[in-house]
């Protein structure tokens, strides 16, 4: 038998867990430093073409300059509002459409093949048609952000609506509740988790829609900066925009995650 040590087994277990977490963090930081360090090194040593691949130092410097002269913020503001409007409206319209076909099962059956086709289709391919229909402006970009998420939202939420335990509905019906009351008291709240999780997916999708939309039409925004940087061969600008997008998309996702925790903490 081991030498008797007066350690609390729970405390030592917790300590072990903490230790593991620290190892994970350390490894993550090492990967981060290694990647950017190597990138910087190969750029200054000209192992890679600095004109094409830029370098972390140049990107950060450019980011700093653009923040100081304020020009970056109008681009961020533009893209951010397009994306936010896109994913909120995409989720909202998707949920409304799902409600409509839940309410009218006939409609659900009629629309089923169309929804499947629309869902399978690459939505960004419709971009040029949107521009022709709505004009080369912010409306087209937002429409792109909505279009890319609305169909999948409809399908996911409608499936969630149908998956609600019939017995909850039975409770409402036994009190004489109407179809509207069944929807409001049971179907919708029961599907809150599904709605929030499509919100999470739609954040990512709307970024795609909006950036592609900006590639096609805009004079402003992060997608515009990428395309502009590409055209004038300024890859530092391209990579800086990418960095900003990555940071903003993560923040947006985290906000939705916080919202999720708040809204559905009582669902099971």
């Amino acid at each position: 038998m081991n030498k008797m040590t007066p350690t609390d087994p729970l405390a030592s277990y917790v300590q072990q867990l903490r230790k593991k977490t620290i190892y994970v963090r350390i490894t993550q930081v090492i990967i981060f430093l290694l990647f950017f360090g190597l990138w910087q090194l190969s750029s200054t040593e000209r192992w890679i073409d600095p004109l094409l691949f830029s370098s972390p130092a140049k990107i950060v410097t450019l980011l700093y300059d653009k923040m100081i002269d304020g020009s970056l913020f109008s681009h961020i503001g533009m893209t951010l509002s397009e994306t936010a409007i896109g994913f909120v409206l995409g989720t909202l319209f998707g949920t409304l459409l799902a409600t409509l076909i839940w309410w009218f099962p006939f409609l659900a059956r009629v629309l089923d093949p169309y929804l499947v086709i629309l869902n399978a289709m690459p939505k960004v391919a419709v971009g040029p048609i949107l521009i022709v229909a709505l004009g080369p402006n912010i409306t087209s970009i937002i429409a792109m952000g909505i279009l890319i998420s609305i169909i999948i939202t409809t399908l996911v939420i409608h499936t969630a609506f149908q998956g609600v335990d019939e017995n909850y509905v039975k409770v409402i019906r036994s009190f004489g509740g109407s179809k509207y009351q069944c929807f409001k008291e049971v179907i919708l709240p029961a599907c809150f988790p599904a709605i929030i999780s499509s919100l999470k997916v739609n954040v990512g999708l709307s970024w795609v829609g909006v950036i592609v939309g900006e590639f096609l039409v805009s004079k402003e925004g992060l997608g515009y900066l990428i395309i502009y940087g590409f055209q004038v061969f300024n890859f530092t600008l391209v990579l800086m925009s990418l960095l900003v997008i990555a940071i903003l998309a993560t923040i947006m996702y985290k906000i939705v995650e916080v919202l999720e925790k708040k809204l559905i903490r009582h669902h099971h």
Partner: peptide, 19 residues
């Protein structure tokens, strides 16, 4: 012919609304 206010119905499980 339809649910009546003077009739109450209780199911096998509680089916309390978790939200």
């Amino acid at each position: 012919t339809k649910p009546h206010p003077k009739i109450g119905y209780m199911l096998q499980q509680d089916y309390l609304f978790p939200w």
